[in-house]
Amino acid sequence: MKQFSYIRAEDVAGAVAALSADPQARLLAGGTNLVDLMKYDVMSPATVIDINRLPLKDIETLEDGSLRIGALVSNAALAYDPTVIDRFPLLASALLAGASPQLRNAATTGGNLLQRTRCYYFYDPSSPCNKREPGSGCGAIGGVNRIHAILGTSASCIATHPSDMCVALAALDAVVEVEGPDGRRDIPFLDFHRLPGDEPQYDNTLAPDEMVVAIRLHPDHFAANHSYLKIRDRLSYAFALVSVAAAIDMKDGAIVDIRVALGGVAHKPWRNPLAEAECAGKPADEATFRQLAQRLLAGAQGQGGNDFKIPMAERTIIRALTQAASGTPQVQSEKAIR
């Protein structure tokens, strides 16, 4: 790890001021991703701003019924929060599908949003990577790309976003509250992460002098029919090859509202709200789910090593929606797919 100077921020304004003074500085929360990347010299900030003292650790229900989750709430605290379990079980389940208990104790909500890709070439400073070093090329295209993206890729980058939590937040249409020198603004979740295009160095639409302060969830109607189904190389503590956050609002077996977000397949959690809207009024059955899966995967393209993800994603979407419709969500401690 390269040496750096350390600033301990005491409040949000202080952290934003320190970041504005040096937009190359990095904010340190749980450290589970940043410290790791610093050990590999993938990220080598000259200044690290410790935000662990900031008062962003509350989960509160707002007057309109929304849930506001502070950026420093740990992944474990969020996953086991009684309100989250009761009203947003899809989010709780996705959190428990990710990482290990130790990592969930340290990792934060804001940090989970901002975690970098797990692409092997990004992690290896001796390989070309347009995300790590713009213009250097992409080792994964034509290389070893079993874990890489099948949707929304570019000629510059085929990396995926590794989060489970974010897949659930995408399905739930969360809002990201950010603060910069000019005050606060809201970013709709689907606009927060971005596709790589020809600037894969940018994972998201956060300005360099802004920080995430909270996530808000709308008053819900998906507590009954949901499932988070994650397919990976081992049954715990591994990143997703494909994951699906599925949520359905049903009446008499017909779809009122349906949400499907995919993880492990793109540079951001993948959704198709138009295709979802077209399901309204249709029966919540396999035929509808298959049609929706095919719409979601339209344009999917394998890179050689990850071709298997396309049929796997279709099957996982149908399975997750079937679990959701029947009210039998995947339980993350169960070592079999329901």
Partner: peptide, 21 residues
């Protein structure tokens, strides 16, 4: 997980925690 310790009663990977924090 070999480096797991308890910080304020919670298990954490000590390899990813900067002591200064």
């Amino acid at each position: 997980g070999a480096c797991t310790v308890l910080i304020d009663g919670q298990r954490v990977n000590s390899c990813l925690k900067l002591a200064v924090t």
